[in-house]
Design a binder for these strands. Structure first.
Lengths: 122, 122
DNA sequence: TCAAGTACCGACAAAAATGTAAGCCACCCA
DNA sequence: TGGGTGGCTTACATTTTTGTCGGTACTTGA
């Protein structure tokens, strides 16, 4: 970090925020509607509880999702998208369109990939 | 892949294509101007040769950069951005703007991060 | 009393991504 | 004959990310 490079285009922070295996998927789920922990678990069946909570916490720290505890019985925790998250979502639309338009050129070509990242159905 | 989910928004492929530690940076460099191997090495000083060639090859496989060998002496290899890559670049602009606008909310908050991904100056 | 549901935490292990260092081959120049 | 450049390749090590599995605390229902 000695010399500040003139090429700070903002992509770094942005990519960091969504580049978890499940983050985009989770962002999209809470974008559709607020959801509670167990609900998200059901919506994204292949995620483990550890990963679910971990990614949610990071997204919370990054300000794109909001976590609210309702002191009821049984306890209820709801995750919802923030304004900040909605803007991110919108910024992702062109990228999604790009991926959709040219689907098939990249996907399925590399056999050894596509297992760790991009679970499926993005 | 048993049941096709209705939520194929294209983000998966797109994220897979740019989510390497150096890919966005490299895409941006070849976007500015075609460059040869050693040139890229100089432009992105912290990348190792192995990573450089690896990421370039993957980007080539994904169709976003083009590799051309000039049978000269000394041998010359030039990497340039493709049409496909330019479109990707454009699709990334809103995302970059998002990251730039809200810089500081995410960056620098998590001490243990920012080392593996997003080298610097994105 | 036992099972089940909700929302987690944490140790450990596997897998994936990245880094380090060395070597290769063809050529040029001295 | 030896060193330097260009564009790689390969083996191996380290770091980062993700997964597995078990446990916690509380409460309701059978």
């Amino acid at each position: 970090m000695g010399k500040k490079q003139p090429d700070s285009c903002g992509l770094g922070p942005a990519l960091e925020v969504i580049s978890g295996k499940w983050k985009a998927l989770l962002l999209w789920q809470v974008h559709k509607a607020p959801a509670r922990f167990g609900e998200l678990k059901r919506l994204v069946p292949d995620i483990s509880e550890k990963m679910l909570i971990q990614q949610l916490r990071e997204m919370e720290a990054d300000g794109i999702v909001h976590r609210e505890v309702f002191p009821e019985v049984p306890p209820r925790v709801e995750y919802s998208i923030t304004e900040f998250g909605i803007e991110l979502d919108n910024a992702l639309i062109p990228l999604a369109r790009w991926g959709k338009q040219h689907a098939g050129r990249t996907d399925g070509q590399r056999p050894g990939k596509a297992s760790a990242l991009a679970p499926r159905g993005l």
